[in-house]
Design a protein around this nucleic acid. Sequence first.
DNA 1: GCCGCACTTGACCGCGCGGTCAACATTCTC
DNA 2: GAGAATGTTGACCGCGCGGTCAAGTGCGGC
Lengths: 194, 194
Amino acid sequence: MRRKLTPRGRERRDQLMECGARLFAERGYHPTSVADVVAALGVGKGVFYWYFASKEELLTELLKASNHDLRKRQQQAIGEEADPVRRIELGIRASLAWFAEHREYFAIIQFAATDETFAPVLARNREIAIADTIRHLKDGIVDGRIADRDPALLAHAIHGVVAELTRHSLVEGNLPLDEVADLCVAFCLEGLAG
Amino acid sequence: MRRKLTPRGRERRDQLMECGARLFAERGYHPTSVADVVAALGVGKGVFYWYFASKEELLTELLKASNHDLRKRQQQAIGEEADPVRRIELGIRASLAWFAEHREYFAIIQFAATDETFAPVLARNREIAIADTIRHLKDGIVDGRIADRDPALLAHAIHGVVAELTRHSLVEGNLPLDEVADLCVAFCLEGLAG
DNA sequence: GCCGCACTTGACCGCGCGGTCAACATTCTC
DNA sequence: GAGAATGTTGACCGCGCGGTCAAGTGCGGC
């Protein structure tokens, strides 16, 4: 693992991350060996350890990069919107849209959440996302637009809906993003009663 | 692996499953070796392979047994209830109650869902549970008590809420079951608007 | 022209894994 | 109490893993 990377080196690193993401998503982290990753790229094993200290580090970097990207997308979507309920809706839609474009990351994140080694990173990422949602919820509760219940639990409920609809409808199924997003937003705002 | 088991044998098998469940939940499936399982019980490795054909089989049996138990609990809870909305509520409460009592299974199920080898078993279990929910939802839609939206997506939304609240509030946190269940039911039935 | 650094190679290492098995112990059956 | 069936032992096996490294390649700067 080296610090200084030339443009050529940065490209290799990106190739390894892309390749790793694909294989981890397809077969899972443990069943994918470092040998598999470098073989898929047609290079020697040493290349991997030139860019990453370990297999663990590759996954950690993938998790960091994907979370960074997702958050950027959410923040851009919410922008300057003042209405807290609308902010929640825009956040939900941005998450679904991002996962629709990066389906391969879903399985990776899902796995990482169950692994002692990576769970801390994931937990931190999730806490930040939840904290964002809680802020909007509290604003909505003050406005009287949202029922006065524990905002932390409500935030987790929303994230649960988003996660499961992402998995079922976007990753496994291939339903139109807009329809899924509309239902997701409607369910979160009005429940089954609608 | 043997078919005929005396009472003594059945007890050993149960010990191995309990032990495996605990270790898989604590450290994860891959990082837990068969040697760890038998060591925790203080017996030789051969014992494991007398009762199970492989490590995979142990996990598969754990998944089957837990699913069977959870379903039994749900069916007992729903009983003869006629109101479809109430049936959904009772199902939600039964699921949360079961997981509150069997927290160790949550991590195992979560992992199995991300592993190529076990995903099929989990997918089948989930499909059955979803199908149950869909039946109640359709009844509710006919009655006009539930909004006329895609019942499959609604069912997944509900399961997403239950799963995430289970994870956060019951498994990681340790919140009172009743409070979590009340909020979960309220969110599913009425959404944030309440 | 050549030095040095970024980068690549692939044989190799040690380890711990899942799984096997011959021998042995205990318990049932008649 | 003989013999079969059930249950137990732990040394052993082969393998493939994550990771190392001495050697080599090719490019940019001087």
